[in-house]
């Protein structure tokens, strides 16, 4: 397997687009995102006209339709945006950090760790406040991330994709087994939490978002400011050091940002997989491997992808709905297989 690891991370065959084209892409992305946002507020089980939507935002009159918009759809759309952006940026950072095209918070066990932490504390202490949920999810995600990273990077050859993914898969398996064990011991916890566990952006109110949003914001800002350093890191550890980068620090900060973003996303929406895997690959088509551009693009397209997936999840079997985590897995896992096929040559 020695050759495969070099080939798994494709060198920067970046499409050389000019600065203005990239800026244009960013603006178009933001406009599309705004469109998605409006569509996702407008469409749903109840038929509500765009005009009513607008009215409910500027002149709220307390009618049922207005209530649906402000208490159900708006929070949901905003949460989908934030979670999508957080996951996509976390995924991009992980792919840069681990030099591994297959990295994603779900695959590498961060989501499972956060989920186990939340389930275990719900089991022990009963229902918790959103604030404590978030911190518990951070702690669980951080422990899992550290464990997977350490295990994936032991050995002479350093971090290899196979080791990293196996470590992630097995730790996820272990944590899922423990989660299942807890849920078997307590049917109350199971009923409380099974929809959350499947990954969903429904049924959260704006208050949840308000409490977690600061962490996501800090994470995003930190991530964007690390763009240059991460790009240098992807050129290889030695080159990065030669460029005067303190690689240890950059890696540590980037890892903290990953945990911050992924943990916030999990505490808001449960484990939603594969957004962090897909989005970086999509945006690389346009911006190449330059993380200064890749990260903001990933945020926008991640937000858009999750909004659209959520929209699909509630429209396919209307008036019931699927947990969005299942939808992303159904889209994302085939993509993972495609990547494993095309990026791993032997």
């Amino acid at each position: 397997m020695p050759q495969s690891q070099a080939q798994l991370h494709q060198p920067s065959v970046s499409p050389k687009r000019s600065r203005s084209l990239r800026l244009l892409g960013l603006i178009v992305g933001i406009l599309l995102l705004a469109l998605c946002f409006v569509v996702s507020i407008t469409l749903g089980a109840a038929e509500i006209t765009p005009n009513t939507v607008w009215q409910s935002l500027v002149a709220f009159d307390g009618s049922t339709n207005h209530l649906i918009i402000t208490t159900v759809r708006l929070p949901r759309a905003l949460i989908a945006l934030s979670v999508g952006a957080a996951l996509a940026v976390a995924g991009s950072l992980m792919q840069g950090l681990t030099q591994n095209a297959l990295a994603d918070p779900g695959i590498l066990g961060i989501s499972a760790g956060a989920a186990l932490a939340v389930v275990a504390s719900t089991f022990m202490f009963g229902s918790l406040s959103v604030q404590s949920y978030t911190w518990i999810a951070f702690a669980g995600g951080a422990i899992a991330a550290i464990a997977v990273y350490l295990l994936g990077s032991v050995g002479r050859r350093g971090i290899t994709p196979l080791k990293l993914i196996l470590a992630g898969a097995v730790l996820s398996y272990l944590m899922a087994a423990l989660t299942t064990g807890i849920l078997i011991l307590s049917q109350r916890t199971l009923d409380d939490i099974r929809f959350w566990l499947a990954g969903s952006v429904a049924g959260r109110d704006l208050n949840n978002l308000v409490q977690v949003f600061p962490y996501i914001l800090i994470g995003l800002v930190l991530a964007f400011s690390l763009g240059k350093q991460i790009t240098a890191l992807t050129l290889g550890e030695d080159v990065a050091k030669g460029l005067g980068l303190r690689t240890g620090w950059v890696k540590a900060i980037a890892a903290i940002v990953v945990v911050l973003l992924a943990g916030s996303a999990v505490s808001l929406a449960g484990p939603i997989g594969f957004i962090g895997l897909i989005v970086p690959h999509i945006v690389r088509f346009w911006v190449g491997a330059d993380y200064r551009w890749l990260l903001p693009y990933a945020a926008i397209w991640g937000a858009m992808l999750l909004s659209l997936t959520d929209l699909a999840a509630r429209l396919v079997i209307k008036p019931q709905e699927l947990p969005v985590g299942i939808m992303t897995a159904l889209i994302g896992a085939p993509f993972f297989i495609y990547l494993a096929r095309s990026k791993v040559k032997q």
Binding site: I107, I165, A198, G273, F274, G325, I326, A329, I337
Partner: peptide, 17 residues
Amino acid sequence: ILVGVGVGAIASAFTTL
């Protein structure tokens, strides 16, 4: 192995469903 991890993820998504 890698493709197996992916197929496993799809199957577990349906199981969760």
